[in-house]
């Protein structure tokens, strides 16, 4: 068996640091998409509760010490940080661990950087810590999770990692140049 080298999606691309913002790669651990079968959402929520999680409300995240459950679309959530157990008969499950590049954008200018690429109202009073959205990042489909007042996690398809880093870097540099 060949010895294969495990590379992260943004290997060699990050970190990028500008005045007011820094972009790093997050390592969220395993990612499982969970889509409850018809009428099984409550049972799915109970099963997730065994891991300290639950079913997220629309546009929200459930955050526990062991992992997170992010709303990811209509009838879909992503469990990350742990592999959920006991859902086999309740939901359609897909291992997406290697499918996403996850970026962490932090700093006083983080929201201003993201606003250059993402047409959401990113003011903390509207898109608050703990909120999640599916929205475009440039032309890319993304999942956004505001993890703090000045911190965002940005999920894009792994194949888009280079483009996402490039576009965010251009926005960071342009904003920094304004001083």
């Amino acid at each position: 068996m060949a010895s294969l080298i495990d590379k992260s999606p943004c290997e060699d691309l990050l970190p990028i640091i500008t005045p007011g913002a820094q972009l790093t790669e997050a390592q969220p651990g395993p990612v499982t998409s969970v889509a409850p079968f018809k009428g099984r959402q409550a049972a799915t929520a109970r099963a997730l509760a065994a891991d300290g999680l639950g079913w997220p409300e629309v546009g929200r995240a459930v955050v526990a010490p062991a992992g997170r459950c992010l709303w990811a679309g209509r009838g879909v959530a992503f469990v990350t940080g742990l592999v959920p157990q006991g859902l086999e008969d309740l939901a359609a499950l897909t291992d997406q661990s290697d499918g996403w590049a996850v970026l962490r954008l932090e700093g006083a200018q983080a929201a201003a950087v993201l606003a250059r690429l993402c047409p959401l109202d990113l003011r903390a009073a509207v898109f608050a810590p703990g909120h999640v959205a599916r929205a475009p990042l440039g032309h890319m489909m993304a999942i956004l999770h505001r993890t703090g007042a000045e911190a965002f996690e940005i999920w894009v398809f792994r194949s888009m990692a280079g483009t996402a880093v490039h576009e965010l870097a251009v926005a960071m540099q342009a904003l920094a140049a304004r001083g």
Partner: peptide
């Protein structure tokens, strides 16, 4: 309409 860039509903 399909919300392609959003929730996929």
């Amino acid at each position: 309409w399909y919300h392609e860039m959003g929730c996929a509903a």
